[in-house]
């Protein structure tokens, strides 16, 4: 089951979004993954079928970049260091490259479940 989230209700109200946006940006920055050169979608747990499927669908270049970022971050972690400022991820670079694929696969599964239990209305 996906974790409970209020993201949807925030995004649907522009004024709430305006209030929350600076806090969210600060939170993402404090989370620290950007200092290791990662983007938010790198943190999605990949040990499940849906994400594995999504990873298979990534274009080759995107998949390569993902692997590069991860190995660099692991290296930083081992060395107990952070990346130099210019190599860290900027907020503009922090784009969801994997979540659209995950959403698509979730939709496909939901559609299949729905159609599998379909009955004809008399």
């Amino acid at each position: 089951m996906p974790p409970l989230t209020i993201a949807k209700s925030i995004l649907s109200r522009p004024w709430v979004q305006r209030v929350m946006r600076p806090m969210a940006d600060k939170y993402a920055d404090l989370a620290g993954y950007r200092k290791l050169g990662l983007v938010a979608d790198d943190l999605i747990a990949e040990e499940n079928d849906i994400v594995q499927e999504a990873l298979k669908r990534l274009p080759p270049k995107v998949a390569y970049d993902r692997m590069f970022r991860m190995r660099r971050a692991v290296q930083c972690s081992i060395a107990h260091s952070l990346l130099p400022k210019e190599e860290q991820t900027t907020p503009e670079q922090d784009i969801g490259y994997l979540s659209p694929y995950i959403a698509e696969i979730e939709n496909e599964i939901a559609e299949r479940n729905e159609l599998d239990s379909l009955t004809k209305r008399k």
Binding site: E108, E111, L115, L118, K120
Partner: peptide
């Protein structure tokens, strides 16, 4: 529509 939906609808 998705290919699955097309398939199921035409089967129906």
């Amino acid at each position: 529509r998705s290919s699955l939906r097309l398939q199921r609808e035409s089967e129906l």
